[in-house]
């Protein structure tokens, strides 16, 4: 099976020769599959998503490596073509629903943006589609919500709006960047179930960025574990959550809150594990020459 998204040896750094954010990252996601990207905050999980979508912050850039989407290298495409391709086929579900909606624009327009301006739908059809999607994410009065401004609806509802917006153009790949971190625990579960359902129904591939091993265990078939911008473990969820995981993955699992066995959860990552990882990263940096 050929991969929908294949990242090969991706290096990202701040400026030329500046601090490295991603170190030789390789991974692949098949069409319709869910791949988890796990790691502590600052491990570079979100950078991968931003690099794919081409929205890295100013000053941060891809130094080497390829991002193959459907066989095309995104990093080699001209800017306009890349923007168009990403606009049509890749979407992002952002982390914080409070800041990811423009406070000055009505919600409806923010869902139909991509349909109208990138795909060239007429406004009526786009609105009908938006209403349908809001219905799909279990928003009861789609018409009213589309007319509302972001501050007029709750945080959970905003996240559902963002999910609807992400699925609007039937993208082949959705990058979910910690979509539940900013939400209440009770809402988190609903939102996760919703993403899972929609993904299954629309056959979308999902790159799921999170620091929560519990979420990954529920949602992902395969995953990559990141430390300091380096993939330290990668493979099917069945193996990583199996009897003999990588020590760091084991530590991350141990750090996940578990309500059924509280005495086993929330363990700090052992120092020996960190030291081994740091040595690994340092070794990788010795071989690295910034092209």
């Amino acid at each position: 099976m050929s991969a929908l998204l294949r990242i090969e040896g991706l290096n990202v750094s701040v400026g030329r020769g500046g601090p490295r954010l991603l170190r030789d990252v390789s991974l692949s996601v098949a069409a319709g599959e869910t791949h988890g990207l796990v790691g502590e905050s600052g491990a570079g999980k979100s950078m991968i998503g931003k690099a794919i979508a081409g929205v890295l912050p100013r000053g941060i850039a891809v130094r080497s490596g390829r991002i193959l989407f459907d066989g095309q290298d995104l990093t080699a495409l001209p800017r306009r073509a890349r923007r168009r391709l990403v606009g049509e086929r890749i979407a992002i579900i952002p982390q914080d629903p409070l800041t990811a909606l423009n406070p000055c624009r009505r919600i409806g327009g923010q869902i139909t943006d991509r349909l109208v301006h990138i795909l060239g739908w007429d406004a009526g059809r786009a609105r009908a589609r938006a209403a349908e999607l809001l219905d799909e994410v279990a928003i009861r009065e789609p018409g009213r919500v589309m007319q509302a401004y972001p501050h007029e609806v709750s945080g959970g509802m905003r996240q559902r709006v963002l999910i609807a917006a992400a699925f609007a153009a039937e993208p082949a790949l959705i990058i979910a960047d910690e979509p539940t971190t900013a939400l209440d625990v009770t809402v988190q579960r609903q939102v996760l179930r919703l993403i899972g359902e929609l993904q299954a129904r629309h056959g979308t591939a999902l790159l799921f960025v999170t620091h929560d091993m519990g979420v990954v265990a529920k949602l992902c078939r395969s995953l990559s574990v990141l430390y300091a911008g380096k993939v330290v473990d990668q493979g099917p969820a069945a193996r990583i959550f199996g009897p003999d995981p990588h020590p760091y993955a084991r530590a991350l699992i141990a750090a996940t809150p578990r309500y059924d066995r509280p005495e086993e959860s929330l363990m700090p990552v052992p120092e020996a594990v960190i030291a081994a990882l740091d040595a690994e990263v340092a070794a990788a940096d010795r071989d690295w020459t910034d092209g």
């Binding site: 979508a53 306009r80 990403v86 943006d113 990138i118």
Partner: peptide, 18 residues
């Protein structure tokens, strides 16, 4: 221009000026 909804708009395929 640093805010999340602007980054999201970039990812929607809009050019910087749009």
């Amino acid at each position: 221009m640093h805010l999340d909804y602007v980054t999201l708009a970039r990812a929607k395929g809009y050019s910087e000026i749009a």
